[in-house]
Amino acid sequence: MKNAAAIEVHDLRKTYQVRDGGSWRGKTREITALDGISFTVPAGEIAGFIGPNGAGKSTAIKILAGILRPTSGTVRVGNLIPWENRLAHVARIGVVFGQRTQLWWDLSVGEGLALLRDIYSVEPARFLRNRERLADALDLHGIMDQSVRQLSLGQRMRAEIAAALIHDPDVIILDEPTIGLDAPSKLAVRAFVRDLRRERGTTVLLTTHDMHDIEALADRVIVIGHGRILADSPFEALQATTLSERILEADFTGPLPDLLLPEGATETARGSRSVTITFDPQRLPAPVLVAHLSTLPGLGDLRIGRPAIEEIITRFYADHAS
């Protein structure tokens, strides 16, 4: 039996009226940010919500968070309509905007969390348990007494995640949660999100331009473009339909021999003693290509992999550019 839907979006539309030329006397025209999108996210799932700039992601996220009201369509998050049940809604969700802060610059992290305790009416005992749990998981003990303006970006993002979770939300929306972070901080945030879902069954909607976040976390990918849903599937299915090629890297013990590759294989890079070959496994099975290369003198290691996730998503965007 599938989990109940934590997020339900049906035929969601949002249009704006803008004036040409920026003047109040200019003619108005209608901009469509969302053009009838529909999707659901079951409870306990991590769904990636991605698309190029201007695709409609931010508009959709603001509607889900209760910040914007749509032009038409229906949205339920935890069976609440975000813009109609705002107080109850915000008490049950957590939102992290990577480029904005919900903490207060001149307050310490601990003071900011205490203020959020009062805003969300979190019982004192539950607040202390949550603060300790989050401080342990996100390595916040050493910065609890520091003002937010003194924190590094990585420290601030960890504190922002704690702020979004201090009231035990059922659903969290992560908008660029690892933007600007160094590699160790990104790994720490990803590990925390995985643990959060595993231990507490929290539903996560993740929007990011860092495709490694999607690869590491998302159960499925919802791709939006031009205000419409372009794909909604596990990443593996998106990859299979978008860019099915494989990458073979071959190392040689001496100079590269002449390569006469079979049909379906293309040399894409070479070094003095290595070569990279792209091939389509539907046209040229990997064992056939490996058998062909094994006849070459001086063959050493062979490695077969998939194209980088950024390449797959870039190809998908290009295929749906119009």
Rank of each mutant, 00 (worst) to 15 (best):
Q155H: 05
F252E: 00
L116A: 06
I179D: 08
R220A: 03
W24A: 12
F235T: 12
G180P: 06
A240S: 13
H141F: 12
D319Q: 14
A65C: 15
I46T: 05
E45V: 11
G56E: 09
T15S: 11
I166Q: 05
I277S: 06
D251L: 11
R303M: 10
N53E: 10
E45K: 10
A216R: 04
P281H: 09
L217P: 00
Q239N: 10
G73N: 03
D232C: 05
E160W: 13
A188Q: 12
T208F: 07
E30C: 02
G22W: 03
S233L: 06
R246S: 11
F127K: 01
H141N: 13
A4H: 13
L165D: 04
D280P: 06
G154V: 07
A47F: 13
L248P: 02
I37S: 01
N79L: 13
I173G: 05
M211V: 02
E245K: 10
L64D: 02
G142A: 14
Q102G: 09
L289N: 05
H209Q: 12
G22R: 04
N85T: 14
A47Y: 02
W104P: 00
H209R: 08
R100L: 01
P70G: 06
H10F: 14
L107I: 04
Y120T: 00
A159N: 01
I119V: 15
L217K: 03
I172Y: 00
V189Q: 09
T314V: 13
H212N: 15
A286Q: 15
Q146G: 05
A231H: 12
L302G: 10
A159R: 04
T242M: 09
I247D: 10
L153M: 08
G264E: 07
R306H: 14
G21S: 10
T59V: 13
E311I: 07
A43V: 11
T203I: 08
T74R: 15
A33Y: 08
V204I: 15
D301P: 00
V75W: 07
E45G: 02
N79T: 14
D251S: 15
T203D: 06
D11C: 05
F49Q: 04
L140I: 09
V122R: 04
I50S: 03
Q17L: 15
A163Y: 00
V41I: 15
G51A: 01
G298V: 08
R86G: 09
T278E: 15
R283N: 13
A125N: 12
L256N: 01
I46L: 11
A6D: 09
V75S: 02
G51H: 07
G48S: 11
K2R: 15
G264V: 09
E249W: 06
G48K: 00
V204E: 00
F316L: 13
R228T: 12
L116I: 11
L230N: 04
E215N: 10
A47P: 04
A318C: 02
G298C: 05
S152I: 04
D20I: 14
I247R: 14
Q150V: 08
E267H: 08
K62N: 08
D11Y: 08
V193A: 01
I173E: 06
I31W: 08
W24I: 14
S152L: 05
G300A: 13
R69N: 12
T203G: 00
P281D: 07
I224F: 09
P255D: 12
Q99P: 05
G48N: 07
T314S: 15
E45M: 09
G44H: 03
G78A: 03
